[in-house]
Write a protein that binds this DNA or RNA. Sequence first.
RNA 1: GCCCGUGUAGCUCAGUAGGUAGAGCACCACCAUGGUAAGGUGGGGGUCAUCGGUUCAAAUCCGAUCAUGGGCUCCA
Length: 634
Amino acid sequence: MIKITLKDGSVREYEKEVSIYQVAMDISEGLARVALAGLLNDKLSDLRTMIREDASLSILTFDNDGGKHSYWHTSTHVMAQAVKRLFPEAKLAIGPAIENGFYYDFDISRTLTPDDLVKIEEEMKKIIKEKHEIERFELPRDEAMEKMKSIGEDYKAELIRDLPEDVVISFYKQGEFVDLCAGPHLMNTGMIKAYKLLSIAGAYWRGNENNKMLQRIYGIAFPKKTLLDEYLHRLEEAKKRDHRKLGKELDLFSMQDEGPGFPFFHPKGMIIRNVLEDFWREEHRKNSYDEIKTPIILDVELWKRSGHWDHYKENMYFTEIDEREFAVKPMNCPGGMLMYKRSMHSYRDLPIKMAELGLVHRHELSGALHGLMRVRNFTQDDAHIYMTPEQIKDQIIEVIKLTDSIYNVFGFKYRVELSTKPDNAMGSDEDWDKATNALKQALETLGMEYRLNEGDGAFYGPKIDFHLEDSIGRTWQCGTIQLDFQMPERFDLNYIGADGEKHRPVMIHRTVLGSIERFIGILIEHYAGAFPIWISPEQVRILPIAPTHHEYARELKEKLAEKGVRVYVDFRDEKIGYKIREAQLQKVPYMLVVGDKEMESSSVSVRARSEGDLGAMKADEFIEKAVEEIQSKK
RNA sequence: GCCCGUGUAGCUCAGUAGGUAGAGCACCACCAUGGUAAGGUGGGGGUCAUCGGUUCAAAUCCGAUCAUGGGCUCCA
């Protein structure tokens, strides 16, 4: 007797082995119709999987990640089958389900065009209509290899060659199409309902730039047309929040052909920058940081000593002054080291926390540039903390808390990653282990969830990264905390301990916002350009009805400006509806309409960006309210 | 860097049997003096990204360069 415990705790008993699909059928036919995969003993499993002993099982539908995965996996097979029909010579590489949809990589001699996508979609329609049963079978390694080689699937053969010894090599077959695949898959191709092929992209075989570039097709699929439409609509909406589009519309910044990756900040963008930096300074003063500024160009010798010459040269810019070699700084730390070394330090002075809004330049690959998110020059809100080894954990915790409190002001969700020793690292394994453990402990003390990112640390130390999301869900690293035993050694940093001897301090490199530029990009998308009033470049716009009200508007403006409010008057000879429309499109938080009524009663008619007409109130009352709202950073 | 797409007025875009450029918005002028998302009329504005080639003739076809968008990580 086999006992199967279901999600709701109920138990089903079977005389002999049974497939997950059959169990779903037994629960209800309706469930079986929408079943896409099973979670068998917490393992994502194919519906065909036979249950041979007692187990827990839940049936997965499109509402579960596992179900979606299976749905998209079959979708990509249908797409691959269509491609093989249209391009019989195409070789298959890999084709997984991803977070949002699926892709498949092909090696095809001719480059695909958007027209091809339409043809492939049409062929997919036929395959879905043909409703092929999907069969799973296994082969021993040799036979599997032989089979793939015989049909010219060289990439699949290579994959089989590199599979671990103990793995079961499975295939899925639908009609004439066979693919090496671990599954899981749906029962037949007819279950794919609404789908769309979204884009063609290049992708290196196995993600290695030394390998051949393949053609990747991305797609998405849903069990209902309405879901697909909703998804496509959401994509469109997300595009409207794109910081590059809003940056132009709201006149915040621009990129010029003359400076690829070097952003220009316009007056309104500068207001946002300055507001951010003021806020940042305030928070750092409260947390006992000192602020410094180090030069942008420094002698190449410094960069040789710091290790950047050996580990970071490819990303650096160089120049010559009076026949002496200089480098443009890609990081602020070496300059910071010199600041530390300028005098003796006592253990009583530690930790020393030196912050710097430092402009750094890095040579990023041209194809990697992306609006304000990835640029070639940016301002890091950097700080270096010099401390005794005993202070490490507390200092890391303090930085994590500071970062969290600052992100909370903006209401950001974030993800934390711990990155470990990379291939081109500097320093001993012991140092790295010590540093990595310190970061881990700090995270665990705070009970923070984090993702491990093997081999992605800085060349001088492991790091904790804070990732923020953009409008379409891509994440960008912003805050970072890096523990470093190397630089203090290389620069022979010291402090005098209680014993009167010299000791080696440990240092932390850290940023909270990360790059001011990137952070502004994230801010723009997060708020869709409708900044909270304390950040808004223009906080209040006064809209006089007619020229006779200009004088009153001017007086109001002065009153508000005196209180530090960023206020402008629209003196143009236009109708009120026109002025409102423009202020609204510019996402100004408050519009004050002033005409005869308001003039007579020393009041203003308030229109809020989001709520619309709020009616009249005394001018002084509005000013007080606005100032309060700005100060509270809501 | 690599693959594919795109590059026409300040902005958004139209302009394919190749015959030396258009619209809306914005800007300027005049008229209208207007109460919660675009009042009317007129006007100025473009080396069609750059360089080269094909052609009697190129925004349009070809090549290169530059810029820009998507992707190149999420492992059958």
